[in-house]
């Protein structure tokens, strides 16, 4: 009705507002110049922009440099078992749908020891954001070859250069059943990275983001060298993709129009030869979600549960 309108108290206004400082915990102990600093800032910025209540936000990590992340966030966190960040996060989400869950994992944690959990996390498609900090080396243990180290990377485990071609995490995820959100970004592109994480956070399902991350100590020749090389990255651009400002868009020499609904093209762009594509590869908002199944009986009362149990037990009655 025009004259009367719902009272303003009815508006859903937050009672508390959070600053970036409300999400900052101890000083980050990553090496100077490490890409993780940029990711931390982007995530804190996201928390502030979306005003995520710290007590309703959980960061779960495995083991590795990246996995120190929960210590630096003033939210709930779980610095878990090597490779087992996904199962912990799934457990949280399964019974606490009200929490915002982020999984922080690295190329060793996710693609090596945790690969089994990784692929099933993709298939479960529970609503959470998974950030893969990919510096293509084991940094915490001082340089061993990781599954994503480029061919010929000299490390403690392969002093004469690694002998196997690296795995492509984007291609892997795109190939898996029920995948619903795959994006790639680079830590030295903070604006793009922020928008990507934001898009991932809005996604109704499992959002997988691989972040190309510099390691200035153990992989000096890796992405660190690419920071000044503007030709290395190609931007995937689309109205349904990652929204960036014209300033950011124009800083990319190569822009590829790519519709994130098209999984075949996504697979093609995942394997570009001379360049690395960043942006949203694939998104399907309608993929089935396992967490919805998990929460379907949450509002049952104790009596109802008891009655259910009894009904089951009664089936065995003679």
């Amino acid at each position: 009705m025009i004259g009367i309108k719902a009272d303003l108290i009815d508006l859903d206004l937050p009672e508390v507002y959070y600053s970036i400082q409300d999400y900052e915990s101890s000083t980050a102990r990553w090496c100077p110049g490490c890409g993780d600093h940029a990711i931390l800032t982007a995530v804190q910025k996201l928390c502030r922009e979306e005003q995520l209540p710290p007590e309703k936000t959980v960061f779960v990590s495995g083991i590795g440099c990246s996995s120190r992340f929960p210590h630096y966030m003033k939210t709930y966190g779980f610095h878990g078992l090597h490779g087992r960040a996904f199962p912990v996060a799934e457990g949280v989400k399964f019974r606490r749908p009200d929490l915002d869950v982020f999984v922080i994992t690295g190329d060793g944690d996710c693609c090596s020891i945790g690969a089994g959990h990784w692929v099933h996390a993709l298939r479960y498609n529970m609503k959470m954001v998974a950030l893969l900090f990919d510096n293509s080396i084991y940094g915490l243990t001082k340089k061993q070859t990781s599954p994503t180290s480029p061919l010929g990377t000299s490390s403690n485990t392969h002093p004469r250069g690694s002998v196997l071609p690296p795995m492509n995490p984007i291609q892997t995820t795109l190939g898996f059943t029920n995948v619903s959100f795959v994006a790639q970004t680079a830590d030295w592109q903070p604006a793009h990275m922020y928008e990507t994480i934001k898009k991932a956070h809005q996604h109704p399902g499992f959002a997988f983001v691989r972040i190309l991350q510099r390691c200035p100590i153990w992989m000096k020749d890796g992405f660190c060298a690419d920071v000044g090389n503007r030709d290395m990255l190609a931007l995937l651009d689309h109205e349904d993709g990652i929204e960036v400002t014209d300033e950011v868009r124009n800083s990319f020499p190569t822009i590829i129009k790519h519709d994130p609904a098209d999984i075949n093209n996504a697979r093609f762009y995942a394997e570009l030869e001379d360049q690395v594509a960043i942006g949203l590869f694939y998104q399907d908002k309608n993929a089935p979600r396992y967490d919805l199944y998990g929460t379907s009986n949450l509002d049952m009362t104790n009596d109802e549960r008891l009655a259910g149990l009894n009904a089951h037990l009664d089936r065995f009655a003679i």
Partner: peptide, 24 residues
Amino acid sequence: FRCTSCNDCVDKYPLQFKYNEDKQ
């Protein structure tokens, strides 16, 4: 907009550099 918040400049030359509200 390209700053990666690595703290280098603000730590070493705090008089010349600072972070903005987005920590860049």
